[in-house]
Design a protein around this nucleic acid. Structure first.
Lengths: 345, 345
DNA sequence: CTGTTAGCGCCTTCAA
DNA sequence: TTGAAGGCGCTAACAG
């Protein structure tokens, strides 16, 4: 059942049916009514493939994430999808699992489906792929990777703010021996977190031999193992900062398994503030990175490119704001119960 | 850049280009080589919309889940997507958040994109929507909702098996006062779990005044509150079965907040065995429902309908197995540390 | 084995 | 305001 069937029954041309659907007002109220009646009777709706073909616009967006199994990402996707839906877009979601092959495949699939834009929320990206996408003139929005350009924008996370608060919080509590469990060195965002932490520790007067740095992989398991390393050190830290909440959850577990108490003997701070963070034991003190805000800024950045102007940006804001504000997501410390005063022992 | 450009440069017709891409072997090795060369030079790939339009096949599948924020679902989607990719399908994912309006919208969007099949993993479904889908002759696979039919299959979870093991485990440990925290009464799968639990308790000799039943909502919060209800009862249960792991995580927290120990004073058993279950404190004893198996069975059920025959079913199995086996997912107790012997007090 | 031809369902000029 | 006609990029007959 296609547009011709509708046209026939409504005794109009297919052009008129198309118009009543897509350009309300360009058709007499009377004809429109007749057409809509038939449309409803037939439960007709346009074939999007035909539509995409002729219009050259698919109304599909792609979103690339590292790992849907990390709760951070479903929460991000949720927000992004809401916006996409609101603006009449469909979403193609792909989880790369930190695998370059999967990543390349995902990009290929998206390009084949002629997505109108891609949100690359993986914080790692092969320049060759970026090039492929740019070649097709498909706009991109990155997370933390760097240079903006024609059809390319970049959402910047202001790690320093929240991390600074976290470090200050720890210093307030009297901690002087602080460790950091970072993420994979290959991940740009993990590197940025690491740098922010080290920088803030340094600024807070925690010099090099008062701190330790180990590396996890942004999973619970990784955090667990990294914490065990830390516990095996001759001089134990009294506070541990983690590159993400999953890592912190693993660390929490390792500490407890070692028979130590949080925050009694060791304080732990996570990063992200995933929903679960509230429900660890004890509830996790962590640095919040708002998924909602990230989703929103990434989406409107993309939409702006697609619409070729700053219209959409304007639309998303009542007052005018700076470019930086539109592209920057801030972070903020959320104090719960995994941090406490250093115990004098 | 389209197929004609490739044809021109390779000095063949567009039909030949199409053939070298889609029907390897139907073209001379020599011409094929020439065509591929041009394809690579131009980085050409076919426009899927044009392809879908002419072939009548979109190679897109839809998957509907209740809540991507519940880790059970990302794990399920992951498996489903792997299979889809392997078979050349794209996936449209939608999270309904238990909202009928969102559900209806999701179905509409999928139908508009002419998905070739829909996996409805929500355990609740408006019959009107089912009808809409059937009207379009789009195959469906349900989870636990009931009747199979033309183009409709249903994956059945064998709750009794795992739940039976869980109850037996508890009885072995000497528990006689057992409570159950169920899911929303509106959810078919929650009802089935509830029935399985009650049935197994009954079969295990736990009669009515030895058990209590309260209702959560399959979230951590819901489990927390439900457990508080239970703790406020005059006679406290010594073991609690939960309708899913999130609920169990909330329960765990409530027990600990009340100053009681798990499993010292109260044993807790979850359901699903999400990845996180291993990382609660203490690690959660739970009934495993394999997402991988569920994804696989749902996918092949759908593929079978799409291919119109049992070919795909055969393909997925080396030996021949019964229909029941193809459509049933079993469950199994995984004993960790949240269960222990009843304490005589 | 290869080319020619005819649409797939829709939107969009261009005329009327 | 409405209709006729062309074409988006591709595949699937049908010839050759």
């Amino acid at each position: 059942m296609d547009i011709r069937e509708v046209a026939k029954r409504a005794k109009v041309s297919t052009a008129t049916v198309s118009r009543t659907i897509n350009k309300p007002g360009s058709v007499t109220a009377k004809t429109a009514e007749r057409v809509w009646k038939v449309i409803h009777e037939l439960r007709y709706f346009p074939n999007t493939h035909a539509r995409s073909l002729v219009s050259g616009r698919s109304r599909i967006l792609g979103i690339l994430v590292s790992d849907v199994t990390n709760p951070f990402f479903p929460e991000l996707i949720q927000g992004f999808d809401d916006l996409a839906m609101e603006h009449g877009y469909e979403l193609l979601i792909n989880s790369t699992r930190y695998d370059p092959v999967r990543m390349a495949l995902a990009v290929k699939r998206m390009l084949e489906r002629t997505v109108e834009g891609i949100a690359i929320m993986t914080s790692e990206m092969d320049p060759l792929l970026t090039e492929q996408i740019a070649l097709r003139h498909v706009p991109m929005t990155f997370l933390d990777v760097g240079q903006e350009g024609e059809g390319v924008s970049n959402i910047i996370v202001d790690y320093e703010r929240g991390v600074g608060e976290a470090v200050a919080h720890l210093l307030d509590l009297g901690h002087t021996k602080v460790a950091f469990i970072g993420g994979p060195l290959t991940l740009k965002s993990a590197m940025l977190r690491r740098m922010a932490f080290l920088h803030c520790l340094h600024a807070g007067g925690i010099i090099e031999d008062q701190r330790q740095v180990v590396t996890g992989d942004h999973t619970i398991d990784g955090g667990f193992q990294a914490m065990q390393e830390l516990l095996a050190c001759p001089v134990r830290p009294t506070a541990v900062l983690c590159s993400n909440d999953l890592t912190a959850m693993g660390a929490l577990r390792a500490v407890r398994r070692a028979g130590l108490r949080v925050p009694g003997e060791i304080s732990i701070i996570g990063f992200d503030d995933i929903h679960l963070a509230e429900f660890t034991e004890p509830p996790l003190t962590t640095v919040r990175l708002s998924r909602e805000e990230l989703a929103r800024k990434a989406f409107y950045a993309l939409l702006g490119h697609i619409q070729g102007t700053s219209e959409s940006i304007q639309a998303s804001q009542t007052e005018s704001v700076s470019h930086d504000e539109l592209r920057t997501v801030t972070t903020k410390l959320v104090v719960r119960e995994s941090t406490g005063p250093m115990r004098l022992s």
